[in-house]
Every structure is written in C-alpha cells, then in structure tokens.
Amino acid sequence: MLELKGDGPPIIGLLTLQPSAETWTGHVEGGPVAVTIDGNSIEVLVDSRDLAGFVFNRRLTGTFSDQSMSGSFTIEGATEDPEPGGEWTASRKPADRPRQAPQPVDIGGTWTPAPGVDFRKYSMDLTDKAQDWFDGYLMHYDQPNVRCVSPGIVAMVAWGAYPMEIIASENRLTYIYEVGSEVRRVFLDGKSPPDYYPPSPMGFSNGYWDGSDLVIDTQLLEANVRDFRGEPVSEGARMRERYTVSDNGNTLSAVITLLDPENYKVPPVRRRKWVRNPDTEIYPYECDPDSFYRQMYEQKKLDMYFERAKRRQFD
C-alpha cells in the first residue's frame, strides 16, 4: 500500500509490481504505471487527474527493501490545484482477513465529501474492445450528465463535490445522492432482484456487514461510463464497495472496486472519504439540458451529435 504525504491529506493507493521479461510491470489502483528499478532504487510515474480533469504526473523516487519502500515525489504537468510534492512510503498489503461476524455501526446521516485519499489515477488497463470504444469517445458530446442523463452509480459514487444522505431502516439502506437527485437502495437481507428487473444506472445492490465494515455488491448495471473520461462499464460489470466508519463515527471511508473483465484487465480502484455533517440537508438538483443542445446548435454540431446516437447506446 502506497501512502503519499504532502501538504494536504494523505493519498493512498495500491501499487502492484510484477517482473516482465527484463523489466517490471506496475499498476497503481488498477491503472498502468511506468516503473524503473535499478538495484534497490525505484521510480514510479503515475498519471493522475485533478478535480477539474487536468492530467498531471506524480513522479515517485525512492528505495526499497523486502518489506517496505520510501522516498519523495514531485508533480509534473499542468494542474489547476498543484500539489507541492512530498514524501511517500509503501508497505506490503496485509492479506485479506476472513469475513467477520456482523457488527453493524451507525452509518446513517448526511455525509459531506472530504478531500484527499484517492490517487485519481488517470489511465486504466483497458481490454482491446474497451480501448476501441474509448478511442472514439468525445467527452464533451458523449458524457451522459452534460445532457442531464445519469452517468450511473460507478461514476457517481466517486464524484467528490456533492453530499449524500444514508437512511438506515430494517434490512435496507437508502442512499440519496444530491447530484442528480439519485436514489439507491441497498438490501441487507440477501434479497434477489425481482423477475425481469432491468439493468439500470444505479443497478441492484446487496450489502452485508463484515465486522463493522459495510460491503456492498452491485449488479444489473446499465452499460455506461466509469467517469467523465469515458472509459466504458459493461452491463455485466459488478461494483464492490467497502465502507468503514471511524471509531468516533464522524468519518466515512470507502474503497470502491469495479469488476468488469470485459473492459478492464485489472480492476480499477477508487478511494473516497466523507465527514458527517448534521448541519446540512440534501439540496434539490434539477437539471435542464437546454444549454447543452443550444451549444450544439450554435456550433452547428447538432447533426454530428445525433449521428453519434449509437455511441451513446454503448453498442
């Protein structure tokens, strides 16, 4: 597990290294990274994006032993909110522990996003099929939410700007996301989807308590995008989320893994954190796509937009 410490909150990510011929293959959070190893020195170049979508690199240099790594990192490239760089460490990821007896904790309430935590890894290890689809993606024209269409839970769960409310009731959690006024139900009683339940942007979610962690498995997702970059999510994809409430009950952390071998050679991972905020409520979010179509009209690109309709069906 990697941990970067700069001026802000720590950034955490999973680094995997595998020998490949005379070099090394590396991934951070499921996305490919350039790795150079010379003796006990290591350099890892991680492409990342900031909150505005600008792409930059974090260059990690340091040394390693059998059980740990450490060094410093710098930032390269244009980013809206430049980090100053800092120090990094890594330790071997602990083995997954067996599932624990349920010990539910109070996860209900309104949660406001907190900064940091996630690498915001930019590129992922796409399959050839996904790469072909992705190469033709025009984010400004094809992104669902610019025309007020749901981008789906895989993208929304990681958006960092909007609060969410979790309502706990018997055998069910209800998530209300401010963005898009989206609602999601998480069934805690092992319920199966009803007959003919269709794939949808929010999918069908089952959850269980693994000790005091909440684990959610989501299926029946409609084909969509992973985020505004436009990497695809297939209809057969599943999403696994693990939520942890801090001991004082005021911080909620999540590790979010997309399991979609049709599109990703290595599962993409994201991390998010929220703080409990009883002083706010979920604001209304009405969306009107008029400005999107107007822009198409003014730029004389409406024909092009409609000619690309099939792209938005993810065929």
Binding site: D50, L51, A52, G53, V146, A155, W159, A161
Partner: peptide, 9 residues
C-alpha cells in the same frame, strides 16, 4: 476545485 468534480472541464 471540487466544484468541477463531474464534468468534462
């Protein structure tokens, strides 16, 4: 920056 969290800025 988080104000831009969801669009193709």
């Amino acid at each position: 920056g988080s104000a831009y969290g969801h669009h193709s800025f």
